[in-house]
Design a binder for these strands. Structure first.
Lengths: 159, 159
DNA sequence: GTCAGTGCAAACTTTTTGCAACTAC
DNA sequence: GTAGTTGCAAAAAGTTTGCACTGAC
């Protein structure tokens, strides 16, 4: 799906969500949704705020960002992660499910695809619990940090 | 393993960790470790602080709790979660791997065991990434909240 | 005796809240 | 016109930091 088409679709979904739940259609809300669906990876409130200001020349308060994100989470158009210090968000409509590799050394987050795993998690039988979605965070050392570590070990050895 | 035996083991592991890394063996550190290994589920700093004060009659500052938890994380005797508002911690030595079911309605967290899933995740091939551990958070509605929801829906209907 | 570790309070960061002004309906 | 929404600033909540004092080595 093209980006323009995608944005149109989520905009419609959001409109429907707002209608059903009796919320108002404000320009801020649509501008936020639009910006979010221009971002490929994760983002936090700070980044979103700056991006809207610089790229879209649209200024919204942080309070509105927090408020709107609650709606978007509820509308299932965005998902929330909590690695790092601040909450991270990510667009979720039409996104392939993916898992997160988090480097405990440098904090870098990369995506990891594994269909077999996805299916097994989705099909995992849970007593008395209705799953809506899930997050898998895999912690470890990324290749860059591993190389660095080996290099440091070598230096220390030769000292 | 009995709880007393477990505490003794982790105490030895921690001692070894402190020795190797040139840290001092303080009564605070051992008291914290001991309290943590008395807690079965998750806890946050606040809870740990109160528990030490009330159960063990041991007063430590929050700063020391944060400092010590960094050591315990590094020593792999504790793992950290980030659901909810504050960071959650959990003892990790000799613990069965488990996944977390998080109710998006009431925030309640329960454990979920699934060996097949565990093994598949542990064996999942990842390019250029050395996994150390992982966390699987499954979001949804717990049975209690689901019942509540059905009840509310019924009331609204009959209105 | 020395310096890592501790407690305390202040600082900082992220998120929430109260309120006046605004605007979608 | 009314009530939901916004922006702002203040407050709250969680975590980190600076500094004087303490105690492990």
């Amino acid at each position: 799906m093209e980006i323009k088409e995608l944005k149109e679709t989520v905009r419609q979904l959001f409109t429907e969500y707002l209608r059903v739940n009796g919320h108002r259609k404000t320009s801020e809300r649509y501008a936020i949704l639009d910006t979010i669906y221009s971002i490929k990876g994760h983002f936090d409130i700070e980044t979103l705020h700056d991006l809207m200001l610089n790229e879209e020349k649209f200024r919204v308060s942080r309070a509105t960002l927090y408020n709107t994100l609650i709606l978007l989470l509820d509308a299932k158009l965005v998902i929330k992660h909590q690695f790092g210090n601040s909450s991270q968000y990510e667009r979720s409509y039409n996104m392939e499910t993916h898992h997160h590799l988090i480097c405990t050394q440098c904090g870098k987050v990369t995506e990891h695809h594994n269909e077999e795993l996805q299916e097994l998690i989705a099909a995992s039988p849970m007593k008395r619990f209705q799953m809506s979605h899930y997050s898998l965070y895999i912690y470890g050392i990324c290749s860059k940090c591993a190389t660095q570590k080996r290099r440091n070990a070598k230096i220390n050895k030769s000292k």
